[in-house]
Design a protein around this nucleic acid. Structure first.
Lengths: 241, 241
DNA sequence: CGCTCTGGTTAGAGCCTCTAACTCCAGAGT
DNA sequence: ACTCTGGAGTTAGAGGCTCTAACCAGAGCG
């Protein structure tokens, strides 16, 4: 998924085509390993062996292990963003509260589908690993659909302080304003941002505890908790039902 | 901290004493490494070298790398629980809402103090690693102080469903009931549990995003978000101010 | 048709975890 | 007080990993 199509390469030479295909196969195999045992279980050697190659051959396609990981992370963000977008269009005509619940459910169901991939995005995969800037943009794609929904509410109480910080942010970096405007025109961008960040933190809180198995031995379903959290957010922001 | 004192060993032979001391030094050195580079950067070899030993010597003290990690995790839980308890006694006479804010702040400040240790507790350290049951008990110690506070509120809206699941849980396993009763007598245990789980998810959501550096480049302070989240929870549960 | 550039190989350095077998001495028992 | 046992620490080594260096062969380019 999203292997070579990100670089259409108008003059697609056969060399390039082969290269893209092999890169895709490597990524696929690597994902398989991660799905099975998480990021630390990813071994370039094993991936190569699985494809009928020897270890060092992979270094012709990816500079190193971290490079492969970042690419998988970007793909993961894209997949999550796609899941959110399709959920958003499916409930485009529903009231905002229902949209929020649907987006939350979509987020969760994508995450539990392949927990290790979610941990790949949300956690820090390697010791010295620092997320490259392109992943930040991808992450925004995941949260984008929330902006339009939560911009329909308003902040009260302690959330007002959060919103004030968002205004500062909007003043400082115009790129953020454009991003918000693209997803949520005709709403107060600071409110949309404050609500979205809050929703993000709640989603991540519920879902990451679930995928890490920390609910094991506890007497509740993660879906119930997530639902309650989203409903509470809708209540607090006065989202129309 | 909490090295040998967990097993007082009434007949503390000098052998045992030496053993406990070295175990403590190993754990200290390992923690240092984790603080610097996270769990995957922990190398038994390097720890041994730092203590003037050779690699295999450590295997006389810990069965393997995962064993050392679990022990560090347990210590981490204990430290977090202690931080929560001292915060709880400091605000024991304040109104519940203020207590909740204080506990949240204590949780966060402990986590940001050594982010990698927090990730050690919250994340999955190794591929095949599955949390042993003793860590579950320790985790309960961290959340304990929240029970008494949140038991003072009540559930509304979608949280009622969560509370219903908690009642089932309380019926199924009496150990949970005892745990809640120990921390929060004279309140409805299901309400306390529902509120605590919710608070846990929110705390983890805000804090884990922060320690993983995902707020980088965003225009808000984590403390503001956490505050807003705790206030919102207090509002939703009608905690007296 | 010949050159180049690239995908693939093997060899190997330098890590790592963990096991096996060996010393050697401190402490326990008589 | 003397022996002897058991545990702390060692070296050697198997098997794994990432990644570099040097080399080979053939496919695609001009």
């Amino acid at each position: 998924m999203a292997d070579g199509s990100s670089t259409p390469t108008p003059t697609s030479t056969p060399r390039q085509r082969y290269r893209d295909q092999v890169r895709g196969e490597i990524k696929q195999a690597a994902l398989e390993q991660i799905r099975a045992g998480g990021a630390p279980a990813l071994s370039l050697n094993a991936v190569a062996k699985g494809l009928g190659l020897t270890g060092p051959a992979l270094y012709k396609y990816f500079r190193n292990r971290d490079d492969l990981l970042t690419e998988l992370i970007c793909d993961g963000y894209d997949a999550a963003a796609a899941a959110m977008r399709t959920a958003a269009v499916r409930v485009a005509d529903a009231p905002p509260r229902e949209q929020l619940l649907a987006l939350g459910a979509a987020f969760r169901s994508w995450a539990v589908e392949s927990p290790h991939v979610y941990q790949l995005l949300a956690g820090t995969p390697s010791p010295g690993y620092h997320a490259p800037p392109e992943t930040v943009d991808r992450a925004r794609g995941v949260l984008g659909p929330l902006l339009g929904v939560l911009g329909r509410g308003d902040c009260r109480g302690a959330a007002l302080e959060l919103r004030a910080e968002m205004r500062f942010w909007l003043n400082d970096s115009p790129a953020v304003g454009e991003w918000v405007a693209a997803w949520a025109p005709d709403v107060d961008p600071a409110t949309a941002l404050a609500g979205t960040v809050t929703a993000w933190a709640r989603l991540h809180g519920v879902v990451s505890l679930e995928v890490q198995g920390l609910y094991e031995g506890m007497g509740h379903r993660a879906g119930t908790l997530l639902n309650a959290e989203m409903e509470a957010l809708a209540d607090a922001m006065g989202l129309p039902a």
